[in-house]
Structures are given as C-alpha cells and as structure tokens.
Design a protein around this nucleic acid. Structure first.
Lengths: 224, 224
DNA sequence: CAGTATCCATTTCGATACTG
DNA sequence: CAGTATCGAAATGGATACTG
C-alpha cells in the first residue's frame, strides 16, 4: 500500500491492487461469495487475519462494502469494485493463455470441487435426483472421493458418501480434471485418450461432460 | 513470486504480476522505452537493483526479451507481454475513473514532462521552430522551468533554457497540469478559470492545448 | 459465524555507493 | 551505459491458537 510517487493512473491503481491476495479476494466476490468463511474457502491458503486486513483495506478504498444483515456480515462490491471485473477477467484470460505450467503445489481437490460447484449447470442434469461420483485416483484419502448430487434445482457437492445410488462414476487424476476445468484439455480429448474414464449407463457417460462443464474463463476463451 | 497454491489462471497470473513495480515496468515498455536508463526515467523511485531484478524475472517468465545489440542492451516485449497491454490499459482506465485523489507525493514535474514528451503531437505545431516555455509556478527551482522545442519533426524537452526565442509561455501549477494531463481537468475549463495562463500571440494561445494534448489514457476514456 | 491475537521468520525494498 | 554490491530497517505475512 505504499505509494509509487506517480500520478499515473496505473500506478495509483496498483497501490491498492498489487498487494498479495487482493485481486483473488475480488475474484471471489465476483464469483458470488459474500460471507467471510465463504471467501476463505476460495483462498484457503490465506490466513484469516490477512483476509480480514485486506477486506478492510478494500472497504476503505471504496471497492467493497461490509454490512451487517441481522447477525451475519455480508460483503459486496461497490460500483468501483464491479468495474474491476473486466480487469480480473483480462488477467485470467492472460493467465490461461500464457501460463500452462501447473505445479504440484497449484493443485487442490477441495478448491477444484468448490470452484466447480459454483457453476454446475443444473439444467443439463436429469430431472430425477442424480449422483455423480468422482474418484481422483492419485489423491490421498480426504480429498480423493467426491459426490455431486443434483436434485431438482439443488446442487450438493460433498466428500463423504451421501449414501444415494450412484448414477455414474468419473475416474481420473487431479491434474487431468484441473486441466479440463481450466480449459487446457477438452473433454472429448480426455475421454478419447482414456485420461478420464466414465462408468455407468450410456446416457450418463455421454452427458457427464455437460453436467460438469468448464470454468467460466475457459468458456470466455472459447467464445471470445 | 511465491505461489498462491491455486490452479486458477488469475492466481497464476498474479504470481508474476503482483510484485511491486512489475506492471509499471511493463507500462514503460508498452509506452516505448527500450533501454535500462530509459526505463528508469519512467520509474524514478525504483532502485536500479530492483529494476534489474524485475527485468530478469519478467524475462524468465517469457514476458520480455533482453538482447544486446552492438554494445547496447535492448529490452522488448514478447507476444505474451504484448497481450498484457489490455490489462495495463484496463487498470489505467479504472484508476482514472475511481482514484481522483492525488497527493503531494504523487506529483513529479520531471515525470510529468517525461511522460508528455513521449506523445507531443508534432503535426499540430507550426512548421517553423517553435518554443513553448512552461512555468510551474509552485515548484522549486530545478523542476519549475521547462522548454518544449519542436523543430520540423524533432521534439526536445529540457529544463535548461535552450536560448531560443520563446513563442508562448504556459504558466500554471504542477497539480493543475498533472490533472489536465490525466484528463481530470479539461483544457478549456482550466483556461476559463485562469488555472492555466498562456501568454503570447493569439495563434499560440489558442493552440497550446492541442500542442500538448493529454495522456493516452485520458484519450481512451474520451473515445471509449 | 466472523473474525482477533500473537509471534517471529522471512522477505522485501530503499538508500547509497560502486564498476567494467 | 547498464547495471552490481551491500546493508539494514521495515513490513509482510504465515502459522497457530483463541474469542464473543
């Protein structure tokens, strides 16, 4: 937050925005998180103290709002914050295009499923309650098994067996699913090479890619 | 440069870009600087050691190139770097729209004139050699007096009297000229209120605003 | 749920001076 | 011109535990 000593608008913008984690917090708000612990899930490696500090800074900068609704605290963006969305998107598209190397440390099954959960396209799923099991074969217990349950318009993603009958099972490795999600690897290619295996009735095997989709940024690249 | 532990493209992008000064260095390259000491003039508060470090990091990240041409070192952007220009511009436009408060410490006459020099619209000036004197009335010596000399297609900006006959003189305060340059304050308004005084022949007095213009970002806002 | 509190290792950066 | 070298102050931020 220290000054660059420049009148240049880029410099003035970066005085607020170049602090570590800041734009990722804004990304979370942009993706719809509004509560403190909801935000935390999107930036799990950030300490709560630091998140709290950043939120305060952003509030003072007029980029976000903090309000107490009943006994809950709600964060939101101001007009100024909303106008940062194109910046975040531009950064994301650039990252997608130019940074392909993902290291072990960039992968996180919880983060991946949390992100996927946000945009599960319910309309693509059958009307009847449907359960997709995901098995990330190379991940330790406590992050390996996931269940996506769609029932009506309700989505549930959990890492403990909900006990329902499983409609289909997707088996792959964490890196592969991450790459698919980012848009680096198209679903059809992943299925063709066997990097992803889907077991279950034919209908399901064909539809699982549409049930999960890809991240918003991947779609932006596709249509842009 | 430490990892966020996230596969998200925004996070991967910020791992490189959120370090202090980084995007300002890219801005300088974007505006046409190619040599080390040229870059320094655009980020005068940055120590040479740090600039050197950032350049190396950007080179390793595949964003800029460094080549020795003859005995001079030349920096340039790669395709990846070029695609950061929209990001820098988006940040600048956001900064221009939402951060209006300029503090004393953001003002710097050398930086301002260095920036203005880059885009002096020669075509707007008379054919004959023309000298515009600028007097920043509230600035200490060693930054107060400037001369813009346009002769043919050549532009010279200096802070020592070149000795030519002065065609016109612009007198104002540093903050005012900075605001005009950024686009916060339109030329006509500044002239009307007397915040800027131009002395000299009528022709000159009418034309000085077009001789100097405004920053590229200000123009982007106007046309966007 | 929504944060605070504490603590210290580590990093970072600015200042200044120097070099082939 | 194009950087290095060195140094120390300051801040950052990660880890962990705790609270109304």
């Amino acid at each position: 937050m220290s000054s660059y000593g420049q009148f240049c608008p880029v410099a003035k913008a970066m005085e607020v925005l170049d602090e570590r984690w800041t734009l990722l917090v804004i990304r979370e708000l942009m993706l719809g998180s509004t509560h403190f612990n909801e935000l935390r899930r999107g930036v799990p490696k950030m300490s709560p103290a630091l998140l709290s500090k950043r939120l305060r800074t952003l509030e003072r900068a007029g980029i976000i709002t903090r309000s107490e609704q009943g006994n809950r605290v709600v964060y939101g963006v101001t007009a100024s914050g909303r106008e940062l969305f194109p910046v975040v998107e531009a950064l994301g598209l650039w990252g997608l295009r130019w940074i392909h190397q993902l290291g072990e440390e960039d992968l996180d099954p919880h983060l991946l499923l949390w992100d996927m959960r946000r945009t599960i396209p319910v309309d693509e799923w059958p009307r009847a309650r449907t359960t997709l099991a995901i098995d990330l074969a190379d991940v330790e217990p406590g992050g390996r098994h996931w269940w996506v349950v769609v029932s009506g318009s309700e989505v549930d993603v959990c890492d403990v067996d909900p006990g329902h009958e499983v409609t289909a099972t997707l088996r792959t490795e964490l890196l592969t699913l991450t790459q698919i999600w980012r848009g680096d690897l198209p679903w059809p290619a992943a299925l063709r090479t066997g990097a992803v295996e889907i077991s279950g009735p034919d209908m399901a095997r064909r539809n699982v890619p549409r049930w999960l989709g890809t991240s918003g940024l991947a779609r932006s690249l596709g249509t842009g």
